Amino acid sequence: MQVHTLDKAGIINELQFGRGISHAVEQGRRADFSLLLAMFSADVRDNTPVEQVEQPLTSDDILRKRFALQNPQALRNDQSSYAISARQADMFHHGGLASAKLAHYLQPEVLTYLPEDTQDLPEDVYLNLSGHERRHLAQKTAPSLIPADLYPQLNTAWRQDQIHAQV
């Protein structure tokens, strides 16, 4: 399903709008002002530095590597699980229940088939999230910290706005 491009705009603060907010305030355009404010992210982590926590390798992973065990049965589907399921169904139709069980023990089928690209959430819950929340869920890496030069950026934006007002 296509998500609106406005959801993916990723508007965090007023620097991304330029002079749009100040013009809306000066000219008394309440609808424009409220629309621009509604597009801001409600997540405080967008403007606050977040420390990245490193997770050590779990003991289960270490033991599986040490004793050369196969991976445990997957809980949810991915693209390869459809081929495994089709192979097991074919084994059942041609060889019966014993053949299907053997195929399952050699390469277990996933426990559940969930919709893809919903970040492990039910589809109705995922579609009810805001664009900012979807963006945070889709990020695979930790968000970057606030730049160290935030105040110079704010000062530069303010000076540029003053220059545009004089011209």
Rank of each mutant, 00 (worst) to 15 (best):
Y82H: 09
L36P: 01
P49E: 08
I62S: 11
A74D: 10
A89E: 08
L63P: 00
I62R: 13
V44G: 03
D61Y: 03
L57D: 10
Q73V: 15
R66S: 14
R45G: 15
A38G: 10
F67S: 01
A89S: 08
R87M: 14
D61I: 12
Q55P: 00
L36K: 04
Q70V: 09
N77H: 00
R76E: 12
R66L: 15
I62Y: 09
R87D: 15
N71P: 06
A38K: 04
F67E: 03
R66V: 15
K65W: 03
V44L: 09
D90T: 10
R87C: 10
V50W: 01
A68C: 11
A68V: 10
A86V: 04
S80R: 14
T48V: 13
D43T: 07
E51C: 09
P72W: 01
N47H: 03
I62W: 07
D43A: 11
E54Y: 04
A42H: 06
A42R: 14
L36C: 02
S80G: 06
A68E: 12
K65L: 13
V50E: 07
Q55W: 02
E51H: 08
L69P: 01
Y82W: 07
A86N: 04
T58V: 08
N77I: 01
L69W: 04
S59F: 06
L63N: 06
P56W: 02
E54F: 09
A68M: 04
E54T: 13
P72Q: 02
L57E: 15
S59E: 13
V53C: 05
N47K: 07
S80M: 10
V53T: 06
A42M: 06
R76V: 13
P56A: 15
A89I: 05
A83H: 02
E51Q: 14
E51P: 03
L69Y: 02
L37W: 02
M39A: 10
E51K: 13
L36E: 00
A83S: 08
S41F: 00
S41H: 02
I62E: 12
D61A: 15
M39R: 04
N47T: 15
Q73E: 10
R76Q: 07
I62M: 14
K65N: 12
L63C: 09
E51N: 11
A89N: 08
R87H: 13
F40H: 07
F40K: 06
R76C: 09
T48F: 05
R76W: 01
S41W: 01
T48L: 11
Q70L: 11
A86T: 03
A42T: 14
D60S: 14
S59P: 00
F67H: 09
A42C: 11
F67N: 02
N71R: 12
Q52I: 07
S41I: 06
Q55G: 08
V50Q: 14
L57M: 14
P56K: 13
A86I: 03
F40R: 11
L37A: 04
L75M: 12
A83R: 05
R76F: 09
D78V: 05
D90N: 09
A86S: 07
A68H: 07
R87F: 13
S85W: 09
N77F: 00
V44D: 05
E51Y: 03
L75E: 12
D60I: 08
S59L: 13
V44R: 06
S81V: 01
V53F: 02
F67V: 03
V50S: 13
S59A: 14
D46G: 06
P49H: 06
A38D: 04
